[in-house]
Simulated assay, not measured.
Amino acid sequence: MSAERERVVSELQTRAKALGFDAFGIAAADARPDLGEKLESAIAQGWHGDMDWLAETKVRRADPRVLWPDAKSVILLGINYGPHEDPMDRLKDKGLGNISVYAQSRDYHDVVKGKLKELAGLLARRADAEVKVFVDTAPIMEKPLAEAAGIGWQGKHSVLVSREFGSWLFLGAILTNAELPASAPHAESCGSCTRCLDVCPTDAFPAPFRLDARKCLAYLNNEHKGQIPLQYRKPMGNRVFGCDDCLAVCPWNKFASRARETRLQAKNALAHTRLADLLALDDAAFRTFFAGTPVKRLGSARFLRNCLVAAGNSGDSGLVGLVSGHLEHESPLVRGMAVWAARQLAPEATLAGLRRRHVEIETDSEVMAEWTM
């Protein structure tokens, strides 16, 4: 590899750090020939749930060169989003609407993409190269490529783990037709530890390094478009968006630090919002409150669905009024979970009255079924 390319990489590393990136590595575009087989196996077993886009893009996802035949190298960048408090502590307050650490701040796509574009522009100028920038915007498997680029390794929970930043790294990628010197890949360093597997409240890991999304609470309350399956409602606790359990218990987090990018630091209003306040949000208020955050993409109906499950798990009968107010919501997702939450919280006499009034006007069979489960 020419000395000129080495100088380009050095300049890129310096600029990446100045832009706020905490991790930098390079992998050859063909560094992970094993991805196709692993992805095909997961899809064949149905672990992707109703994320049909994974199956539809599996060929491109398995190899960056299918996405872009001229790609020679992939630059992987990471930004630390470490929390200022232990996410596990937030599970103890049942009246709290627990939002995953990554969604308590400005949407990372917006933050990371601008930085990536600037760095990619520098590469294009210095190496006379073509570049393409991605932050979850194309079928690229950033985590295994980041492992190949030496940034960290995919832990037994399938999330990237860093010796410096634990489980808290947002990833972005720059594909280029420039052939750049590759970093040394990172060896898997979980050892005999199984804390991430053991803590999972739904047993979503069929084996170490394998995740069945159909059982994952982060999938169920974020990607899943239907009702939360009955067997996962109690385990969901007060998690209204995402789940951090397997990330939070990783021992490598002892080296992690709080995010230094201010736009990725948790907003107090998002980190400590009460369920009562969230249940009171109509669609317009939801859009305003969560503007610029990942939560907004979920939509108010699915978010209310999640909040109603959390309300049902809260044990707080003071929420019955807010819960019953959603029994006539326009979305059957919301009405169904309002029924379930009311059944958990309301005294029998109150519940009987709610049932009589609601059954008279309900038209959705799945919602009706919630009264008899």
Rank of each mutant, 00 (worst) to 15 (best):
A259Q: 05
A187L: 10
A352R: 14
A284M: 11
K113Y: 15
L119T: 02
A27V: 01
H84W: 15
R305E: 10
L76T: 06
N98E: 13
D203F: 09
G114I: 10
I75A: 03
S257W: 13
G155Y: 04
A207L: 07
E328W: 09
L220S: 04
G95F: 02
L279R: 04
A269N: 09
H48T: 05
G150R: 01
K117C: 08
R210L: 14
A276D: 12
T350I: 14
G78H: 01
Q13W: 11
D34E: 12
R65F: 06
F134G: 06
K58A: 06
R32T: 04
G150E: 03
I140N: 01
C243L: 02
A187F: 13
D70T: 13
V240F: 02
N80I: 04
L123Y: 02
D277N: 12
D107L: 08
C307G: 00
F205M: 06
E188R: 13
S105G: 11
L12Y: 09
R274M: 12
T363R: 10
E179P: 08
E142W: 05
L327C: 02
E4A: 14
E348P: 03
T363W: 08
G78T: 03
S183G: 00
K225I: 09
G95Y: 05
R65I: 09
H186S: 15
T57L: 12
R125Y: 09
N177D: 14
Q45C: 12
P347D: 13
K17S: 14
F289R: 15
D30Q: 06
E56M: 13
V249C: 10
R297D: 14
P69S: 08
A256I: 01
K254M: 14
